[in-house]
Amino acid sequence: MAKIGIMSFAHLHGDAYASCVLANPDAELTAVWDDDVQRGQDAAQRYGTTFIEDMDEFLKQGLDGVIITSENMKHRHMVEKAAEAGLWILCEKPLAPGVEDAQAMVDTCKKAGVGLGIPYPCRHVPALKEVKGQIDSGALGKIFAVACTNNGQYPGGWFGDEALSGGGATMDHTVHVADLLRWYTGKEFTKVYCENGNVLRPGLGTDDLGVMHMEMEGGIAISHIASWSRCDSFPTWGDVTLEIVAENGVIEVDAFNQKVDVYNDDDVKAQWVGWGMDPNGGIVADFVASIAEKRDPIATGIDGVKSVAVTVAAYESARSGQMVDV
């Protein structure tokens, strides 16, 4: 039975992972810690576990692993503390808003001999795994181009505060697809061009749209839209879509388009009710297994660094107005 602790509920995924830990027969939610005491206490009560106010005390609870779902800027400190305590770590994406921080976190975990993983749900979505299988089968032949989107609703709170998030929609919604494409192709990103800005929600402190062009090794052309463009009345949270143009055909993917359209007079808006698999269960199950098997989770710290590097290059491009090397 893996003893899991959760550090911070600043990111809304904290709740998703907590539920998955409770549902996992091989894990228990031993304790939670949060720098926001009220938020931490509420979460502990919600999930029937203990809240520990002091971080060092929390790390001495005999835990096997921690899940970190704090603001992006606070990841590094928590990862270092947990590694020092010898715990397996699953750290919410992006690992850190900068490559140096992200790499340092990987090095720390390696030195401490603990596993470090990034919860990239796309690696656990059946539709996206099926595409991986189609690519690996060789049926598609050479991949020439991929047009991607990761649209979403504005998550609110600290996401719009650059001091805590390190960036806006470009930061929030690029790493998933970057990781997915690295996984699909086994190639690294080489160049990025980005047009971004605060063009949708007036007065936001950060960008809410990033439109990117990227190149991968071997000259694969990639376009990507990272946005918080889905308005409050949009029937679902957002999307991950890919159009993969290859030698022998085209695959169009709308990863979360497994839904029933619901029109109900008591609801204010039309809604999509999904019937697809919850990828968070797969993320937590893999994390729990990685502790028992003394390995990194499926998406490793290095994967986290590589996808962060793409985001960092995107911001650099947006500043310089040129295509930049990753």
Binding site: V199, V211, H213, A221, E243, V245, E247
Partner: peptide
């Protein structure tokens, strides 16, 4: 196979993306 992905920045600050495919 002819596939094109175009990004536009408009004078009014808007961003546009135009995808054209003769790849299907």
């Amino acid at each position: 196979i002819d596939y094109a992905m175009v990004t536009l920045r408009l004078k009014n600050g808007m961003i546009g993306q135009v995808i054209g495919t003769w790849a299907h």
